[in-house]
Design a protein around this nucleic acid. Structure first.
Length: 225
DNA sequence: GCGACAG
DNA sequence: ATCTTGTCGC
């Protein structure tokens, strides 16, 4: 309940986070299957300083064929240090600049990190979803918090991630016998829909193609820029 | 009090 | 996130 602010910047970030949270929309995915799925990721030069050089990338894929239909990048400075729980303040600014350079508006954004599976229920996927107004979900390699049991061994098997008595995410097996990923609600997408979208985007590998392509593009942009 | 801690 | 060789396997 209490969060001892380590600095004025941190206290302000937490305040902004709780302010944005009031604009969060939990609405279930009601529309037809998305036509496009976007993946976003950020590559870094340093190890967690506010001065680190960054390269943000967004890749838009056709949801049915997973072919790239658009992509964009933006290089700059992080502007905020890496602090668990305040990750969005490090990635969102440059991600917004990359998103502005797209020529198409994606139907759903798959973020590399958490959504509701966050200490204040407002991780990167919620934050980016709210500020862009786009449906968003979180797909992480490792959970930030919560407890869970090992999901079944088949692709599509999942188990709930609980925190404080509520389900905040799912550990989802995207490939048989491979370590599960963490899927959580971001904005305007429910957990069932988020699970479907992640599985659709990960037909071959553990991580969805959206994440893999955005990761590759961001690394290239960092080296080039 | 101590450790853990998305990328 | 990033630093990094070889190695096991389809």
């Amino acid at each position: 309940m209490t969060e001892p602010p380590a600095s004025p910047e941190v206290a302000e970030a937490i305040r902004v986070q709780e302010q944005l949270r009031s604009r969060w929309e939990p609405a279930a995915w009601a529309g037809p299957a998305p036509r496009t799925l976007a993946g976003v990721d950020v590559a870094y030069d340093g190890t967690g300083e506010a001065e680190d050089r960054v390269a943000a990338a967004v890749v838009v894929l056709d949801a049915a064929t997973l072919e790239v239909v658009d992509q964009a990048t933006a290089v700059g400075t992080a502007g905020f240090p890496y602090l668990p729980g305040l990750f969005a303040f490090r990635e969102v600014p440059s991600l917004l600049r990359a998103l502005e350079r797209l020529t198409v508006t994606p139907d759903v954004v798959l973020c590399d990190g958490q959504g509701l599976a966050h200490p204040r229920r407002f991780g990167l996927a919620c934050h980016l979803g709210v500020v862009t107004g786009l449906p968003a979900l979180g797909v992480g390699k490792t959970p930030l918090l919560g407890t869970w049991t090992e999901p079944g061994p088949e692709r599509g098997d999942w188990s709930p991630v609980l925190d404080g008595g509520e389900t905040v995410a799912r550990m989802l097996r995207t490939q048989p016998g491979v370590k599960p990923v963490t899927v959580s609600v971001g904005h305007r997408v429910d957990l069932d829909a988020a699970t479907r979208f992640v599985l659709a985007a990960a037909p071959r590998y553990r991580l969805p193609e959206t994440t893999r392509l955005a990761d590759r593009l961001s690394c290239e942009a960092l080296r080039a820029g």
